[in-house]
């Protein structure tokens, strides 16, 4: 049976990895190419690269980053951020992405997922859903956009079903409430999504410990994504995997690092 996947995520802006809390307060977290190579050598099963720049110039630079990362990376690469058209998706694949994550544009026009699925295949078509608990009823989830500044009022679980029907082959589910907090994934969100959708769910937002990851997998996630804990060298992919094996999960283990790992984090700019 397929093994549990660990997916480090690089949020990239202007050619650098950045990381914030609840999508805000971004700080520098290194060079994406060095990070990508280091994570593969630690045993990462896939890599996710999200372009968090907000400008057309930033989009061009993100394509360059994708190409540079692809040149060194021998595992699957998902790229998201600013994908608005089929052409955007095709440009990312040509630059070296294997899967494309669509977020806001699919909300406005679910047919975009269908177009990408029909042209590039369901295995390329990921819907990224940023979900927050609603103020009125914290047991419900709504889709948020624009870094969480806008609450759409759209039910996140219903949207997941709709997106899969439209063509999404996988769901990247980020909890806005937990992102960057280290409080653990939002398990209720993952349970609801995994029951509602037949496709694999990638848990994102809030991971601090291997126990958090184990809980997300038990809640129905097929893969767990994390950023801060790897960037800040709190742990390595290899260490997380050996902990998860001890917790009873089937993981792909790499025997020895293939490449020298990145020795330290880049200093934070003020």
């Amino acid at each position: 049976m397929s093994m549990t996947r660990i997916i480090p995520c690089l949020d990239v802006r202007d050619g650098r990895v950045v990381k914030g809390i609840k999508f805000q307060g971004l700080r520098d977290a290194g060079d994406p190419v060095e990070r990508a190579a280091a994570y593969e050598s630690q045993g990462a099963d896939e890599l996710c690269l999200l372009d968090v720049s907000a400008t057309p110039e930033g989009r061009g630079s993100a394509l360059e980053t994708v190409a540079k990362v692809r040149a060194v990376l021998g595992i699957p690469l998902t790229v998201g951020g600013g994908v608005r058209t089929l052409q955007d998706a095709e440009r990312l694949l040509c630059a070296g992405a294997d899967k494309v994550a669509v977020n806001t544009a699919a909300l406005a026009r679910p047919g975009l997922l269908t177009e990408i699925r029909d042209q590039l295949g369901a295995q390329c078509t990921i819907v990224a859903i940023d979900a927050a608990r609603t103020a009125a009823d914290p047991s419900r989830f709504e889709v948020v956009v624009r870094g969480g500044r806008d609450r759409t009022g759209k039910d996140a679980i219903e949207w997941a079903k709709e997106a899969v029907e439209a063509g999404a082959g996988e769901i990247l589910a980020t909890s806005w409430d937990r992102d960057g907090t280290g409080e653990g994934y939002d398990l209720a969100l993952l349970e609801a999504l995994s029951q509602a959708a037949p496709v694999p769910i990638i848990a994102s937002g809030g991971a601090k410990t291997p126990e958090h990851m184990a809980a997300a997998l038990r809640a129905g996630a097929s893969a767990v994504l994390a950023a801060s804990i790897f960037h800040d060298a709190e742990t390595t992919v290899a260490a997380v995997k050996s902990d998860l094996v001890r917790l009873g999960f089937d993981m792909r283990l790499v025997s020895a690092p293939m490449l020298p790992s990145v020795s330290e984090n880049s200093p934070l700019p003020s």
Partner: peptide, 28 residues
Amino acid sequence: PRLPHFGWNRIESAATEGLVQGGSAYFA
């Protein structure tokens, strides 16, 4: 359990002299 089948899975290969050997590979 879920489709598409995304992820790493073990390759069971009886042959040791073949090009395709035992190990783990990525499927989608």
